[in-house]
Simulated assay, not measured.
Amino acid sequence: MTLWTLHASYDPEAAVWYTLDCDVPGLVTEGETLERLRDRAAAVMPELLTDNAHLIPETRRDGPHSLRLVAFHESTIPVAA
């Protein structure tokens, strides 16, 4: 099994989760929720892995493939003293 990692971050102004970094060549996407981001990434992964096979080490080209989503969200909220 080949495990790929997508690091995501949240943009509060745009209200979307987006690809911060991913080891799948060319994978850049966003979604209103983490689930939507994950689903969109998983939908385009097979085509990107095929189209960009020349950029991927041979040992990572064969499936099955899995996607690990690592999300980072930071927020500051006022707290009554």
Rank of each mutant, 00 (worst) to 15 (best):
P57Q: 15
L37E: 06
L55V: 06
R61C: 01
R61N: 07
R60M: 07
E13N: 15
L55D: 12
E13A: 14
A71D: 04
Y10I: 11
L20M: 14
I77A: 10
A81C: 15
P12N: 06
A71M: 06
A53L: 01
V16W: 07
P12D: 08
G63C: 12
A41Y: 01
I77H: 05
P46L: 12
G26K: 03
T76F: 07
S75D: 13
T76R: 07
P57Y: 15
C22Y: 01
Y18A: 13
E30C: 07
R38M: 05
E32F: 09
D21E: 15
E13H: 13
Y10N: 02
V16C: 02
I77C: 13
S75A: 12
P64F: 11
A43L: 09
S75G: 10
D21H: 13
I56M: 04
P78N: 15
M1F: 14
L37M: 05
P78G: 15
E74P: 05
E35W: 01
W4A: 03
T29V: 03
C22M: 06
C22P: 05
M45K: 03
G26P: 00
L20H: 05
L49I: 03
H54S: 14
T33M: 04
R68I: 04
A80T: 15
V16D: 06
L20G: 10
G31W: 05
D11P: 06
L37W: 00
E74W: 08
H54W: 14
V44A: 02
L49V: 02
P12T: 02
S9E: 10
E32P: 10
R68N: 12
R36H: 11
P64I: 06
V24Q: 08
H7E: 12
H73W: 12
E13R: 14
S75Q: 14
A42F: 10
G26A: 05
V44Q: 04
V70G: 04
W17D: 02
A15H: 11
G31M: 02
S9K: 09
N52H: 09
A41P: 04
T19M: 07
L55R: 05
I56G: 00
E13T: 09
E47A: 06
T50E: 14
I77L: 11
H73K: 12
A8Y: 00
R36V: 02
V28L: 07
A8K: 05
L27I: 14
A81W: 11
L20Q: 10
T59Y: 08
P64L: 13
G63L: 05
A80M: 13
I56L: 06
L20E: 03
V70D: 14
C22F: 10
E30M: 09
L69I: 10
I77Q: 13
M1E: 15
R40L: 11
D51Y: 03
A41F: 00
D11H: 13
V16P: 03
R40W: 11
L6D: 02
P78D: 12
L37P: 02
W4R: 11
P78C: 11
V44T: 09
R38P: 11
A53I: 08
W4D: 02
P57K: 15
Y10M: 10
F72I: 15
